[in-house]
Amino acid sequence: MDLLEAMNQQKFRLELDGSTITAKAGVGFYSKIDLGIVKYHFEIGAGKENFTWR
């Protein structure tokens, strides 16, 4: 695998159902850590009071 192929991948999935967000980590190294970072940034942008995590 080339080094460039390993970077800038989105190994997570966000699904919206009304005001409920489901977040799932993909497969790969650090994917759960990356998902935590994504969730944190989502909360900052959307505001915690405007949605719930499932």
Rank of each mutant, 00 (worst) to 15 (best):
H41L: 12
V38Q: 03
L35E: 00
L3S: 15
A25D: 05
L3R: 14
I37M: 00
K11S: 12
I37L: 04
D34A: 13
G28L: 10
K11V: 14
T52N: 06
E5I: 04
G28H: 09
K24V: 15
G47P: 01
F42A: 05
L14R: 05
G26S: 04
M1Y: 14
G18D: 12
V38P: 02
K48F: 02
N8F: 07
N50A: 03
T22L: 11
G28A: 07
F42L: 06
K48L: 06
S19E: 10
N8A: 12
N50L: 01
E49S: 12
Y40A: 06
E5R: 15
F12N: 04
A25H: 07
K39P: 10
V27G: 02
R13F: 06
E43K: 10
L3V: 14
N50Y: 05
Y40W: 05
A23W: 03
A25K: 08
I21N: 01
D17W: 06
E15C: 02
E5W: 14
S19Y: 10
D17L: 11
E15D: 02
I33G: 08
A46F: 09
W53S: 06
M1W: 15
Y30Q: 13
A6D: 12
I37N: 00
L14K: 02
K24Q: 14
T22F: 04
S31M: 04
E5L: 13
